[in-house]
Every structure is written in structure tokens, then in C-alpha cells.
Computed example of a mutant assay.
Amino acid sequence: MREGVALKNPPDCPKSWHFVAESKSIKKDKPYLFELFGEEFILFRDENNKISAVSPRCAHLGACFSTGYIKEGKLVCPFHAWKYAANGECVELPSGAPIPKSAKLKSYPVHEQWGLVFLFNDEVAAFDFPFFDDFQNREVIRSKCYEVYQEGVWYTVPSNAFDSEHFIHVHNRYPTKEPVIAIKSPHLAHIKYQYEIKGKIWSDRLMCILFGNVAELDFSNWAGNLILATTKVGPFQNKMLIFLRPLTMTTSVSQIFVFRKKQGLLGKMLCEFQAKASQLFFAKEARELKKADIINGNFTASDKNLVTYLKWLGDAS
């Protein structure tokens, strides 16, 4: 029984921005098929080299565009060569017949930056693609994508940021102040921590030796699955962009990128080191929290921030 707490189930897959692939994976002459929790999308480059995303099957007889091709920036069906523009409208039939008014594909918002491609899995984006305020309009470098697979529903991992007790028992991070939670919009939940690091793993030991053991965590969660997290330990900063992608009803993957100000080869090496350390941090969490059922838990007074977050997540869906 959940004492006095009524929670809605979060969506199986949130309407949000999702990481698709590196930009170089989407060629000028070939459609790119992206699958997200059983839903398929086709991405392609138009005549201006801009990436567009549309529904995956031709409005004619339902052939999949994944085996089609791109000609002069238009998406061409492999079955009867119907051509589609970036907005999903059919613009040419090879027979010369009139184009049916219903010959239109759904189109989806796409964001391309830092050599990465992101897609919003709804026809209108509910919010702009977010990024760190202090990194806006600055030259930055990023790590490659580091992944952590976990058993359990997709929203378990991002929910953990709002569970201060788990920081103590899983990660040996002890809050020194009451964490401050703020529901800033239907799409954004935020929490900020100050804590003392008492971990014994090599990365924690090294961090404490170099920068001290007092840290801050600033955590912004967009739509449940997109996370902007900044950790500060002395002068050291770790900025992570994380995506939670549901794979099945009971499995998911965390996709982790670390960003730094552009600093040459040393900066790039530090960026990859930080990303690898972050991957190890989340891998430990995945092992500890396998198949956790947080929605159907018994909540206590110490879970108040977690309950606030879960209520927001259910309402946001």
C-alpha cells in the first residue's frame, strides 16, 4: 500500500527530444531509419543538407522508405518512386498523375548540433532543445556517447536524482543541506544538492585528493528523459547531457555525453575521462537498482522530493 500517495504511471515513452545518431551517420543519398520504442522515423538530408524527419511509410501503398533513396534533396519511395519534400508533402508522381491531397507524411522536429542529431517524437515540439545556460554561444567540445543498459522501467534512473537517500546508500554522497526542488514548468523539474563525498571507489578518491570532498549537483530534468546535470567539486566541473531511452517495458539505456569548453587535446582527453567516469557511476547504480518498482513503493517523509517529482512526471505525460 502507498500511504496517501496517488501516482499516475509515466508514459511508456515520453514525448521529448531523443538522441538519434551522429550527424555523419545520416548521408545525403540514403534515408536513415530510427526506431524508438516500436515507433519508426525516417531521417534524410534535403537539398540544403538540412536533416528532416518524417513517418516511415509511403502514403501510396505503405512501402518503407528505409530501402528508398534521396534524389535532389527529395525522399523517394523504393516501390513506385513517389517523391516527398522535407515537410512530408508529396511533390511528384513519376506517372505525371495529379497528386492526391492525402499524400502527405507526418513530419517531426529535428535538432542538429555538435555533430549530433536529436528528434522530438511528436509533430510539434513541446519545448525547445535545452542546453547549459553558461555554455550557450560558446565553443564547446563533447565526448563520444557512453551507454549504460539497465533492467527496469526507463524513468527509474532519472527519478533517482530526486531521491536523496539513495545518494547516501548507493553512492556515498551525504547531503550537507536540504536539497531544493523546483517544478519550473510542465516540462521541467529541477533539484540542487550540496553534499560531501565519502566514496571509496578510485574516481571518488582521486576527486577528493585533487579538488576536495565537498560537491554541488545542479540537475534539470526535461520531460523525464532528458537531463542536464552539472557537478562542481572545487574548481572542477562535470557537465553531462543524458538521454534515457526505453527499449522495452522492462529495459532501457542511458546515453551520456560530457561537454567542456574548447581546450585543445588536453581538454578532449579530460572530456572522455569524465564521460567514462560518469558511465561507471551510472553502471554501479544500474547494478544496485535492478528492476526497482518506484511507482508502487511505500513512501515515507524522507521521500517527499521523489514523490513531488513522480507526481510531476505523471501529470506531464
Score class of each variant (00 low, 15 high):
270 L>T: 09
283 A>K: 15
163 D>H: 01
64 C>H: 14
248 T>Q: 12
272 E>I: 01
82 W>D: 10
22 E>Y: 11
15 K>Q: 12
123 E>V: 14
313 L>S: 03
289 L>Y: 08
107 S>F: 05
123 E>N: 14
43 L>S: 05
81 A>C: 06
14 P>W: 09
108 Y>V: 05
209 I>F: 10
217 L>K: 12
268 K>N: 04
29 D>I: 07
211 F>V: 02
256 I>G: 01
205 R>Q: 10
266 L>D: 04
306 L>N: 01
176 T>P: 04
239 K>I: 08
83 K>H: 09
15 K>F: 10
236 F>C: 03
292 A>G: 07
47 E>A: 14
309 Y>G: 00
28 K>G: 09
284 K>H: 12
52 S>T: 07
1 M>I: 13
99 I>G: 02
284 K>R: 13
191 I>V: 14
81 A>R: 10
252 S>E: 11
222 W>Y: 15
284 K>V: 01
74 K>M: 08
52 S>Y: 04
232 K>V: 12
287 R>Y: 11
255 Q>G: 00
289 L>H: 13
258 V>A: 05
200 K>E: 00
168 I>Y: 07
310 L>R: 05
160 N>H: 02
98 P>N: 01
26 I>P: 06
109 P>G: 05
156 T>K: 10
173 R>F: 08
270 L>I: 12
174 Y>N: 07
194 Q>W: 15
71 K>E: 07
67 T>L: 03
35 E>F: 01
253 V>C: 10
217 L>Q: 13
82 W>T: 09
259 F>E: 05
8 K>H: 08
80 H>Q: 12
121 N>D: 07
181 I>L: 12
262 K>D: 02
276 K>H: 03
88 G>P: 08
76 V>R: 04
75 L>I: 00
186 P>S: 08
269 M>F: 09
173 R>W: 05
144 K>F: 03
116 L>S: 05
253 V>P: 08
85 A>S: 14
49 N>M: 14
213 N>Y: 06
89 E>K: 15
215 A>P: 03
237 Q>S: 13
298 N>M: 02
198 K>F: 00
176 T>E: 11
180 V>C: 04
118 F>Y: 11
149 Y>W: 07
99 I>M: 04
142 R>F: 01
36 L>K: 10
72 E>S: 03
299 F>R: 03
27 K>Q: 14
61 L>G: 15
